[in-house]
């Protein structure tokens, strides 16, 4: 070894006691330990989902909610409304004509874009990735959404439109 001027000074008293090569080097041991940590974190995350859904189950909508007057929404029109619960959820009220009414959650089941009713197509359309839903049942007709739209039951009394949770 050549003569190093630092070699006489003890390591802890040198200006740069740690060499960059040492500091930036990730050994395979460290990498393996990191992977293990990641594995533990994923397990914790997965458990958290279970704990959350056990501890805070989502409550179904309670009671009837008045939305609007029947005369405000013409045949083939739709009406947006929100219901405050544990979360505020936007809904879409649809008048299919012939006295048929439907109410769906307005969030697409794919990536939560707002869906809209297209009377010319007779389908509910999600403009984001061209997902289409059946406006009677909420089922997916086409496109990426994995699940049907959640539906509410519509009741019409004395010219006024109410919604309530669907009985199953």
């Amino acid at each position: 070894m050549s003569k190093d001027p630092n070699s006489e000074i003890p390591k802890c008293k040198q200006d740069f006691p740690i060499e960059q090569k040492e500091a930036t080097h990730v050994s395979r041991r460290e990498f393996a330990k990191f992977l293990t940590l990641l594995s533990g974190a994923l397990a914790v995350g997965n458990t958290a989902i279970v704990v959350k859904s056990l501890a805070f189950p989502e409550k179904p909508l309670e009671g009837e909610h008045a939305i609007c007057m029947e005369s405000e929404v013409g045949d083939g029109d739709s009406f947006m409304f929100e219901i405050e619960g544990s979360k505020t959820i936007p809904y879409l009220l649809i008048n299919l004509g012939n006295g048929e009414w439907r109410a769906f959650e307005q969030k697409c089941t794919h990536l939560s874009c707002a869906v809209k009713y297209r009377h010319d197509l007779g389908q509910i359309e999600c403009p984001c990735h061209k997902g289409y839903f059946n406006p009677r049942t909420g089922d997916v007709i086409q496109g990426p959404p994995p699940r049907p739209l959640p539906q509410l039951e519509v009741v019409i009394r004395e010219g006024q439109v109410f919604v309530k949770a669907q009985q199953t």
Binding site: T36, S39, N46, K52
Partner: peptide
Amino acid sequence: ALQENLNFAITTALGSLVFAFASFWLL
């Protein structure tokens, strides 16, 4: 979980825990 499919969530959580223990044991 979005669909309130609790059984699936529980099964995967257990599986994930098993894998985590296996990783620690591998160390």
